[in-house]
């Protein structure tokens, strides 16, 4: 790890100014990912601006009937918040499916959004990686790529975004509040993370110096018809091979609006509105869920080790939609997939 300077910001404006004015500066909050990356020499910020003292730890009701979650709310506090558990159980479930209790205690809401890929090559500075070193090449495409993307990949990069929480936030159509040197703005969740294209060094659409200040949830609408189904290489403490966040509006036996987001398969949580629309006004059937899965996975492409993810994702989507339609969400403390 290289030497770096450390300052503690007292206000959001100070924090933003400190980072925006220094191309080598980074915000640090929980540090559960950034400190690892610094130890591996993958990220070498010359200056860390500690934002943990900023007043961003509240979960507040919004005028629209939703909740606004401060960027510094720890993942564990968020998962166990009574309002989240009651009105957004999908979000609580997705958070508890990720990491470990210790990591969830330290990790923050904002940090979860901007955590970086766990691509093996991104972490190994002795290997070419376009995300770490633009133009150096992508080793993963022909290398060890079991955990890599099958959707939205580019010649330059096949990395995935590793978050569980973000898959649920994508399904819930959250809005990200950011503040930068040019003021405040909001970003629809679907537009927050990006596909790698030929600039995989950018994980998301934040400008340098912009800070996530809150994540806003729209008013709750899915009741118990949701699930977060995560499939991985061991039953705890592993990133998703494939995960599915599903939420369905049920009107008796008839399906209203549906949201399905996939994790572990792309550079961002993967949603296809046309796939979700296939269910509208229909009765829940396995065949129909299969059609949704096929549409979601249209254009999916494997790179060898991860070929299996296409079929696995298809089956996971069908199971998750079945769980959600039945109002029988996956319980994260129970490793039996219901």
């Amino acid at each position: 790890m290289m030497n770096f300077s450390y300052t503690r910001a007292e206000t959001i404006a100070d924090a933003v100014a400190a980072v925006a004015g220094d191309p080598d500066a980074r915000f640090i909050a929980g540090g559960t990912n950034l400190v690892d990356l610094m130890k591996y020499d993958v990220m070498k910020p010359g200056r860390l601006v500690d934002i943990t003292r900023l007043p961003l730890r509240e979960i507040e009701a919004t005028d629209g009937g939703g909740l606004k979650i401060g960027a510094l709310v720890p993942n564990s506090d968020l998962a166990y918040d009574q309002r989240i558990q009651r009105d957004y159980p999908l979000l609580s479930s997705a958070i508890l499916a990720g990491a470990s209790a210790q990591l969830r205690n330290a990790a923050t809401t904002g940090g979860n959004l901007i955590q970086r890929t766990r691509c093996y090559y991104f972490y190994d500075v002795a290997t070419p990686c376009n995300k770490r070193e633009p133009g150096s090449g992508c080793s993963a495409k022909t290398g060890v790529n079991r955990i890599h993307a099958i959707l939205g990949t580019s010649d330059a990069c096949i990395a995935t975004h590793p978050s569980d929480m973000c898959v649920a936030l994508a399904a819930l159509e959250a809005v990200v509040h950011v503040e930068g040197p040019d003021g405040q703005r909001t970003i629809a969740f679907a537009d927050f993370h990006r596909l790698p294209g030929d600039e995989p060094q950018y994980d998301n659409t934040l400008a340098h110096g912009e800070m996530v200040t809150a994540v806003e949830l729209p008013a709750p609408r899915f009741g118990q018809n949701h699930t977060y189904l995560k499939l991985r290489d061991r039953l705890s403490y592993a990133f998703a091979l494939v995960s599915v966040a599903a939420a369905i509006e049920m009107d008796g036996d008839v399906i209203g609006e549906t949201r399905v987001a996939l994790g572990g398969v792309a550079h961002k949580p993967w949603r296809v509105p046309e796939a979700e629309a296939l269910l509208k006004g229909k009765f829940a059937t396995r065949e129909l869920f299969g059609e949704v899965a096929d549409r979601l996975l249209q254009g999916a492409k494997g790179f060898g080790d991860n070929d299996f993810k296409i079929e696995l994702a298809r089956r996971a989507v069908v199971r998750a939609l079945t769980q959600a339609a039945a109002g029988a969400p996956q319980v994260q403390s129970n490793k039996i997939v219901n």
């Binding site: 002795a126 060890v144 079991r146």
Partner: peptide
Amino acid sequence: KWDKTLGRVM
């Protein structure tokens, strides 16, 4: 897991 081209444990 070794990368077969680079010979590195990934």
